[in-house]
Design a protein around this nucleic acid. Structure first.
Lengths: 230, 230
DNA sequence: TTTTTGTATTATGCATACATTCAGCATAGA
DNA sequence: TCTATGCTGAATGTATGCATAATACAAAAA
């Protein structure tokens, strides 16, 4: 009698929980780039001691979410336009790979899920509900990556994606660009349905490149703000 | 008068140093997969207290070099054959991207460096010096990735590469496969010299796929050993 | 003999205390 | 008035202490 996996309670350790909480604070903009992470303040805020907090900060530093200044603690990483370009470049390659693999490996259930998300996204588009649109959009991309059936790919993608999600929150794209993005998603769904790996690869890579353009214009004012604060 | 960067002494913090040391121990096989990391033992070994050691372990866990068992510490991650395949799949995509970008962005100096490494590698091949060959090989791939001029790509590649380097150490490839790998490298250098991005992309991706086959056969006995220990 | 339960030991998780470094400010000298 | 130097406070880096969870072993019961 051994079916342990189901009953396993995985209570996340404190430092893991802190990584998540801190990541959220950064993504949601409560800790904008350049902010210094004061240990005492954060300890009081979360009601924990310094040890797990510091462990969390170190992990976040290894993920480039914060930067460690020797003897001066950690500051939230500020993404320059160049950094964004680098990130999108790599994510483009990862999504391209994901698309190609997904076309080979995806099953009908997963395809149906993505299709459902797609039409829900279309709805949000016609209603002009930008945040909900972004959410669906993000989920579709994650599902495609997941459909590739490669856990390393998923983890790598998620890590990079987490670093630009902050920029997504402030993205305010024009109606024209929005329409175009939706059109690209139509094509993406077509290619995936047809299991046309080569086409999906190209579509996703170009889609990412366009997305970068959107974000690029969006972060410019924010970048200036950071400079002003620094 | 502000040219500070040159004089900056960046003494790596203790936990960073520990990450490097521990990583080396894992890569060199002194801490084989499945080994439990006993904090007290490691603290005595490195002459540090538990705090920085624990920070290092948490960072390594976020890089999947070790696995955290709640209340039972960390164990060195055991790579299954499937894990290796996943890793090579993603690294193949990254190297493919690197190759394409490198053809566009590489300068003559970097190209000359890679060429020098290449011929040194050939020398080690003809002399049958496997470890030295691996070293040159690894450096060539890293240089190509670096030539792509994308720091995110470099960091991502390095992280994944670090996880399979252990397997490389025990790889014992046949003369036939070795000759073939060298031949592939000849073609890689050709494509890079010709700045033929599309070709280099294909070459690198196939090269990685072949490399996986080599490593795959190499890790089988090791995998069984892990099972026996567990 | 096998299984189960209780106890002791050990190691981890978290909290706290000590040491060191850095930044800010004030003061003294030019 | 401006600059440089020394001091003070505060925050980080490191070490250690305490509580708890897990493992191993032993003993008892089936």
């Amino acid at each position: 009698m051994e079916s342990p996996k189901l009953a396993l309670i995985d209570r996340p350790s404190l430092h893991e929980e802190l990584v998540n909480r801190l990541r959220d604070l950064i993504v949601e903009g409560e800790l904008p780039p350049g902010t210094r992470l004061n240990e005492r303040v954060l300890c009081e805020r979360f009601g924990v001691s310094r040890t797990p907090l510091r462990e969390a900060v170190k992990v976040m530093a290894s993920e480039d979410l914060v930067e460690l200044l020797p003897n001066r603690g950690a500051v939230v990483t500020a993404l320059t336009e160049a950094d964004m370009r680098y990130l999108f470049e790599v994510m483009g390659a990862l999504e391209a790979l994901a698309g190609e693999l997904a076309c080979r490996r995806i099953d009908d259930a997963a395809l149906a899920e993505i299709r459902a998300l797609h039409y829900q996204m279309l709805l949000h588009h016609t209603r002009g509900e930008l945040p909900e649109y972004f959410k669906c959009n993000q989920q579709i991309h994650e599902k495609i990556v997941a459909a590739a059936g490669n856990p390393v790919l998923v983890a790598t993608y998620r890590s990079l994606s987490g670093r630009i999600r902050r920029a997504r929150y402030m993205a305010n794209l024009s109606q024209e660009r929005w329409d175009h993005a939706v059109h690209e998603h139509e094509q993406i769904l077509e290619a995936l349905t047809a299991h046309d790996g080569a086409r999906l690869r190209d579509l996703l890579q170009r889609h990412l490149a366009n997305k970068f353009e959107v974000v690029r214009t969006a972060i410019e004012p924010a970048a200036q703000q950071v400079v002003a604060e620094g």
